[in-house]
Design a protein around this nucleic acid. Structure first.
Length: 943
DNA sequence: ACCGCCGGGTGCC
DNA sequence: ACCGCCGGGTGCC
C-alpha cells in the first residue's frame, strides 16, 4: 500500500483530503485516510500504478540506434513495407534459443526473428526493461530470407550507460544511424508494389516543449475543432417529441454521418489496391474497419443525452429511423407534406442505402417510414406494425407483440428500478403497459440476426436521468423497449437483452458481471451500438471496468464526456481503444506514432494528434457559437469571493492549532520524513480547514451534539475518552484554550485540545456560518422563491449548518455520499419541484452525486470551503448553471482571511495551470512530485 | 592430406 | 541464399 501511496500523483494526494471527508469520521483517523487513498487509487484516479514500462515510455530518451537483421522471414507470414515500423517481442520459451526475440509487423503478425547473436545481447535489456527497443525496416522489405532493421533504444536517462555497456560487451555499439544507411538502396522501392513513399530518417530527440507551449497547443487543439465544418444540422426522426436546439441537430447530423460513413479511418489511404497506414507505413488488403462512432465531447449541460436519444431513433437501422406504425390512407396525404420536411441529409442517406442495397422496395418503405405520422394509440396497438410494402427484412425490425415469459418481461426489473430510482407512479404505470411489448428478431433477418440494440453504460448517478429523458423526449405512442439492466433481478439471458431497443446499465454492474465466474449476458450480445456516458471513466486501461467495457462487441461506439483529456494524453488512449481505431489499440503504435511524438515535440506530432481528434470528436463548449450566437443562452454566472474574518476566539484557536501543526510539519521537513508522515500532515491540514469552517468540526463533542449519523469510530472515541479521563483524573491544570481559565465542563478535541464546553459553544454563535446565514436570510427577504445550494466538503459541517437552518426556519434538503441512490433521487426531486412546499436550500457535499447532477432549480451557490481541485468546484457550479437554468447564477465562495484557505486558493490557481499544462507533459520524476507535495504543504501552513 | 580445394547440400530462433 | 557454413570427395602441374 505504501508503494501505491508514494506513486500517486500530487493531485491524487490532494484529492485525498476531500475523500477523507466522505467518510465522516476519517478526519480523526489516519488509518482511515490511508484506506481511502488506496481505494481512490484503485478506483482509477491514478494510472501511475500501472506497469513500470508505462512510466518508462513517458520519460524515455533515445539512447541510440543500431542496425540489425531480421532472419527466418520465409517461415512466417507477416509482411512489411520499406520504412515500416516493427515491434520486438521477447520469446523466452523458444525451444532453440531462450534469448529469442520475435519481430512483428503492425498487425502483430510475426515477420521473423532477430538474428541470434544480436538477440543474445537484447534479451537481457528487454527482460530487465532497461530500454524499450523499437524497429523500423529501412529497406529490403521484400527479401526472402533476411532483412535489415534499424533499432532505436529508448529508456530512462539513468539506464543509458548500462545499456550502452551491455551492448558493447556483446560487441554492438549504439550510435546515430547515418542517412546513407538509412535510406537504403535505390532499387528497393522499384521492386516492391507495397513500397511506400520515401521516409525521412527517424527524428533524433527533439527539444522538449515547455509546459507553457504544450498548454497553448492543447488549447488550440480544441479551439480549432470548433471552427471546422461540423455545422450541418439534421432534424431528428418523427418519434422525437422535443424540438432540438441547433447545436444538438449538429451533433445528430455528425453522429449519424459518423455511423453511416464509408470513409477510411484517420491516417489510412488506399494505394495500389491496398490500404495503407501513413503513420506506420503498414499496408494490407483488408479494408480497416471504420470507426462507426466517436467522442461527443460537448461541455456539460449541452444536452448530450438528448442528442444520443435522437441518434438512436433517427439512425436506428441502415440510416433509417426507428419504425413506427402503419400508414393509413388519410395519413398519406399528410405524409406527403411531411416528406418535404425530411431533411436533405436524411434523404441522401436514404438514397445511399437504396443504392448500396439495390432494393427498390426498401426505398419505398423508407420514405414511408421517414414520413410516417402519429397514429392513435389504440390503432397502433391493433396494427400488426407492418407496412404495406415492407420487405421481409424490414418486418423483422418492427416491434411486434409477443408473449414473453414472465421473467423476461420488463415488469420486474422496471418495478425494481422504479422503486430504486423513485420514478413517479405515472411513469411506472405507463411502463408496465409498455412492458408487455417485447420486440423479437426473426431468425431470417440475417446469418447472425440483425443487431438492433443500443447499450448505454453510465454511472449510477445518471441512470435515472437517462430513463427520464427517454420518457420525456420520445413521443408517448412510440414503442421503444428499454431494459434497465440493474439490480439483483436482472436477466441472465442475452436473448432478452438483444430483443430490446435500448438497454441501460452502469459501469459497476457491467464490471461485476464481467468479473464474475458466470458469463455476463452483456458480453454475449452483439450490440448495434454501445454508448459510454461519462466515458472518461474508462481512462485507466488497467481497471477491470475498462476491460469490461473494451470487451463488449458492438458496431457503433460512442463516448460521451465533457473532459476527454483529464490529466494527460494517456487518458485518450483507452477511449481510442474503445473506438477500435487501428492501429492504436496496440499501445506500442499509439506511443510511437502519437504519444511520444507529441510529448517530445517531434515534428508534426501535434498535427497528427489534432487530425486524429478532429476526425473522431465533436466538441462544443457553453461559449461556442453557432452563426455568431452562443450555443446556449445560459443566464449569466457570477462568482464572488466573500472573505470572512475569524473572530478573536476563532483566530486564537486557529493560530494555536496552526502553530502546533507547523511545529510538527517543520520537524518532519527538517528530518526529511515528511512524506512518511503524510497521514499526520494531512490530519493537521484537514483540522485547519475544518476550523476555518467551524471550530466545532474539530471537536469530538460534535458526535454527541449532531443527531445525524456522523460519529467518531468507536475505537478513536474510546481513545479520546481515555484521554479526557486522564486529564481529569490527573487533576491536570490544563486550561481552556479559549478562556485561558481552568476547565469547566471540559470537552476534548481529537488533537487533544481541551476546552470548556460553554466556551466552545459560544464560538459556534460567531463567524462563519454567520456569513452564510446572513446571506440566506437576506436572500429570503428579497425573493423567497430563489433556491440555493450550500456546498461543503465536510458533511459534519453540513450537519452544523442544518442546525442553523432549522433555527431560522428554512426548508432544506441534503445530498451527501452516505445516502443511498434512492434517497439521493428523492432529495433531488423534491428540491427540483417548483411548488411552495419544496425546500429552498440544498445542502450538498462536494463530491457527492458526481457529474451530471441537475440542480437547475437553484440559482445561488454557496461554497463554504475551497476545494483542492478547482475542477471539482467548477463541476459544482455547473450543477445548476446548465441547460434549464433560467435565472442568473450567483456563486459565493467563502474564504477565511489569513488562513489555510487563502493559501489553498493559491494552490488552486497553480493546479489550474498544471491541469491545462499536464496534457502531454513529461511526467515529473517521483522526486519532483515529492518536492511539489512538500512545497504545497509548506505553502498551506505558511512555512 | 592431421592439409587446401572443389562443389553439393543446405539454411531462423 | 548471386551468400556462408558444413562435411564428403579428392589430391602434381
Amino acid at each position: 500500500m505504501s508503494r501505491n501511496f508514494m506513486r500517486s500523483s500530487s493531485w491524487n494526494f490532494l484529492q485525498l483530503a476531500r475523500y477523507g471527508r466522505t467518510a465522516n469520521h476519517s478526519q480523526f483517523s489516519s488509518s482511515n485516510i490511508f484506506f481511502h487513498l488506496e481505494e481512490d487509487d484503485l478506483s482509477g484516479e491514478d494510472t501511475s500504478s500501472l506497469a513500470d514500462s508505462q512510466e518508462d515510455f513517458d520519460s524515455a530518451i533515445l539512447f541510440g540506434m543500431l542496425r540489425g537483421n531480421v532472419v527466418g522471414l520465409r517461415y512466417y507470414s507477416g509482411v512489411v513495407n520499406n520504412n515500416e515500423m516493427v515491434a520486438l517481442q521477447r520469446e523466452p520459451n523458444n525451444q532453440y534459443d531462450r534469448n529469442a526475440v520475435k519481430v512483428n509487423n503492425v498487425n502483430g503478425e510475426q515477420v521473423g526473428h532477430i538474428k541470434k547473436e544480436l538477440a543474445a545481447a537484447l534479451a537481457h535489456i528487454l527482460d530487465q526493461k532497461m530500454a524499450k527497443i523499437e524497429g523500423v525496416v529501412p529497406y529490403g522489405a521484400q527479401n526472402a530470407f533476411t532483412m535489415p532493421v534499424n533499432l532505436s533504444f529508448w529508456g530512462r536517462a539513468e539506464n543509458k550507460q548500462a545499456v550502452l555497456d551491455h551492448m558493447m560487451k556483446y560487441g554492438f555499439r549504439l550510435g546515430p544511424i547515418p542517412n546513407s544507411l538509412q535510406l537504403g538502396h535505390g532499387s528497393a522501392k522499384s521492386k516492391s508494389e507495397r513500397a511506400g513513399p520515401s521516409y525521412r530518417a527517424p527524428i533524433l530527440p527533439a527539444v522538449q516543449m515547455t509546459t507553457e507551449q504544450l498548454k497553448t497547443e492543447f488549447d488550440k487543439l480544441f479551439e480549432d475543432l470548433k471552427e471546422d465544418d461540423k455545422t450541418q444540422e439534421l432534424e431528428p426522426a418523427e418519434t422525437i417529441g422535443t424540438q432540438l436546439l441547433s447545436h444538438q441537430k449538429q451533433a445528430l447530423s455528425w453522429m449519424v454521418s459518423r455511423e453511416n460513413t464509408e470513409e477510411l479511418p484517420p491516417f489510412w489511404e488506399e494505394r495500389n489496391h491496398l490500404y495503407y497506414n501513413t503513420l506506420t507505413n503498414f499496408a494490407e488488403k483488408q479494408k480497416p474497419e471504420n470507426v462507426r462512432g466517436g467522442i461527443l465531447a460537448d461541455d456539460m449541460g449541452l444536452g448530450k443525452t438528448l442528442s444520443v436519444i435522437a441518434l438512436i431513433l433517427t439512425n436506428f437501422y441502415d440510416g433509417r429511423p426507428f419504425p413506427t406504425k402503419k400508414i393509413k390512407k388519410q395519413e398519406l396525404a399528410e405524409s406527403d407534406v411531411l416528406k418535404s420536411n425530411m431533411s436533405q441529409k436524411q434523404f441522401k442517406a436514404a438514397k445511399k442505402t437504396e443504392l448500396s442495397t439495390d432494393s427498390r422496395k426498401e426505398s419505398e418503405t423508407l420514405s414511408q417510414e421517414a414520413s410516417s405520422s402519429r397514429p392513435k394509440r389504440q390503432k397502433a396497438r391493433k396494427t400488426k406494425y407492418t407496412y404495406s410494402s415492407a420487405s421481409e427484412e424490414d418486418e423483422a425490425w418492427l416491434p411486434r407483440k409477443v408473449k414473453a415469459p414472465a421473467e423476461c418481461t420488463l415488469h420486474d426489473d422496471d418495478l425494481f428500478a422504479n422503486a430504486l430510482f423513485g420514478l413517479p407512479t405515472a411513469v411506472r404505470k405507463k411502463k408496465n403497459k409498455k412492458g408487455v411489448t417485447v420486440s423479437q428478431s426473426i431468425s431470417k433477418a440475417g446469418p447472425e440476426g440483425q443487431r438492433r440494440t443500443t447499450l448505454i453504460i453510465c454511472p449510477l448517478s445518471v441512470l435515472s436521468n437517462w430513463i427520464d429523458q427517454f420518457e420525456q423526449h420520445i413521443k408517448p405512442e412510440v414503442h421503444l423497449n428499454i431494459y434497465i439492466y440493474y439490480g439483483p433481478e436482472r436477466t441472465k439471458d442475452p436473448k432478452v437483452l438483444s430483443d430490446q431497443d435500448v438497454v441501460v446499465t452502469t459501469y459497476s454492474v457491467l464490471s461485476s458481471d464481467y468479473g464474475s465466474r458466470s458469463e455476463s449476458p452483456l458480453h454475449k450480445v452483439k450490440w448495434l451500438r454501445v454508448v459510454l456516458d461519462e466515458g472518461h471513466t474508462i481512462r485507466n486501461p488497467n481497471a477491470q471496468q475498462t476491460q469490461a467495457v473494451l470487451s463488449l462487441e458492438a458496431q457503433r461506439r460512442w463516448i460521451l464526456t465533457g473532459t476527454p483529456i483529464q490529466n494527460s494524453l494517456k487518458d485518450l488512449w483507452s477511449l481510442i481503444c474503445f473506438l477500435k481505431l487501428k492501429p492504436f489499440t496496440d499501445r506500442e503504435w499509439w506511443h510511437r506514432t502519437i504519444q511520444r511524438p507529441v510529448t517530445t515535440g517531434e515534428d508534426g506530432g501535434l498535427c497528427r494528434l489534432q487530425a486524429l481528434i478532429k476526425n473522431i470528436t465533436l466538441r462544443r463548449t457553453k461559449t461556442s457559437k453557432i452563426r455568431g450566437r452562443p450555443v446556449l443562452d445560459l443566464p449569466e454566472r457570477k462568482v464572488f469571493i466573500q472573505h470572512v474574518e475569524l473572530s478573536e476566539e476563532e483566530r486564537q484557536i486557529y493560530e494555536s492549532l496552526k502553530n502546533e501543526g507547523k511545529a510538527v510539519i517543520s520537524r518532519y521537513v527538517s528530518e526529511g520524513t515528511i512524506l512518511s508522515h503524510y497521514a499526520d500532515v494531512l490530519a493537521v491540514l484537514v483540522r485547519l480547514r475544518q476550523l476555518c469552517c467551524h471550530p466545532f468540526l474539530v471537536s469530538s463533542a460534535l458526535s454527541s451534539i449532531t443527531t445525524t449519523a456522523d460519529s467518531t469510530p468507536g475505537d478513536v472515541r474510546e481513545k479520546l475518552v481515555q484521554k479526557i479521563k486522564l486529564v481529569l483524573s490527573s487533576g491536570s491544570d490544563e486550561e481552556c484554550a479559549i478562556c485561558l481559565d481552568s476547565l469547566n465542563m471540559p470537552v476534548i478535541t481529537y488533537c487533544a485540545h481541551v476546552f470548556c464546553k460553554p466556551c466552545i459553544c459560544q464560538v459556534i454563535q460567531h463567524e462563519k456560518i454567520n456569513a452564510l446565514m446572513h446571506a440566506l436570510v437576506d436572500q429570503r427577504r428579497k425573493d423567497a422563491t430563489v433556491k440555493s445550494i450550500v456546498v461543503s466538503q465536510f458533511t459534519s459541517f453540513l450537519s452544523v449548518i442544518e442546525v442553523a437552518l432549522r433555527e431560522s426556519g428554512f426548508m432544506f434538503t441534503r445530498l451527501d455520499g452516505s445516502m443511498t441512490q434512492k434517497k439521493r433521487t428523492e432529495a433531488i426531486q423534491s428540491f427540483q419541484r417548483p411548488d411552495a412546499q419544496s425546500p429552498t436550500i440544498m445542502l450538498l457535499s462536494l463530491k457527492a452525486g458526481g457529474v451530471g447532477l441537475n440542480l437547475t432549480a437553484a440559482s445561488r451557490v454557496f461554497l463554504m470551503d475551497p476545494a483542492w481541485n478547482p475542477a471539482a468546484e467548477e463541476q459544482c457550479f455547473d450543477r445548476c448553471h446548465r441547460l434549464g437554468q433560467t435565472k442568473k447564477v450567483i456563486v459565493t465562495k467563502f474564504v477565511v482571511r489569513n488562513s489555510v484557505e487563502e493559501n489553498m486558493l493559491k494552490i488552486q490557481s497553480k493546479k489550474r495551470e498544471l491541469a491545462a499544462g499536464a496534457f502531454g507533459k513529461k511526467k515529473s520524476s517521483s522526486s519532483q512530485l515529492k518536492q511539489a507535495r512538500i512545497e504545497d504543504i509548506r505553502t498551506l501552513v505558511d512555512l
